[in-house]
Design a binder for these strands. Sequence first.
DNA 1: ATGTCGTCCGCGGGACGA
Length: 284
Amino acid sequence: MAPSPARLTVATWNVNGLRARARRIEGWLARNRVDVLLVSETRADPGDPAEAALLYDGRHLHHHSRPGGRNGVAISATRPLKDPLDGFDAPIAAELRHRAEDEGWDATWCDDARLTSAVVDGVRVASVYVPNGRTLDHPHYRYKLAWLDALDAQVRAWAAQGPLVVGGDLNVAPTDLDCWNPRAWRGRTHVSPPERERVAALTTAGGGPLVDLWRACHGEEAVGFTWWNYRTLGFQKGQGLRIDLLLATEDLADRARCEVDVDERAAEGPSDHAPVVATLRRPA
DNA sequence: ATGTCGTCCGCGGGACGA
């Protein structure tokens, strides 16, 4: 078997509908031949013909989605995807269901297709789509917090086993610097302290196992939004959030590079999210 | 901002979610 290459390129992209974005995805993959693309919000059935975009030029695909459902996550890679896992490990999923009962939110939400992972060249890679939360007083917000707790447990279990990359739409702007106008966002989801605490706990900033790659590469003062509201024409106004994150264990994060592909968001017929791309170095 | 998108249901355009 061929030795693992020294570098691993990984991207995350909330495509906001695989069918609507198929042509853009194929063009993007032709220009950006990343080893791994972690896709969120496919909003497509398993086996949808639009999956062809993620199979571009012989790529391997694992797509986790529900028929007729929303959400949907996928992994597209140049090399084979081994040991694919959809959703949380059974004990973590069971705990999430208990939370639904205890906290009075809809337990069927536990069946949402929001997490999938696989092993590529010895590295576990996971694509996540964190619940939106809607408003702070909505049951979906309690679901969001419980889901982030489940993700924390899952990430710690995986990180204890070896190198790990987690990427996706976290639907949380980790700090005020990741929000175009923290004052305007006060009292809304994506910036509330409980969800920020949970994202911080995943990362080295909060004592967790994963490096927030974009933040580590660009320092504590930089601004790097990944999402801009269609409705308010946020992109044209520079009004965005940094909610799409690439997180990696420290062994992979050493001297990593990470950029947001703002040009893709500026293009014709874009997703409301831009891709985030990182180059990782494998430990020797 | 009641703004814009993508999708569902189901066949026309309203409802929903982000």
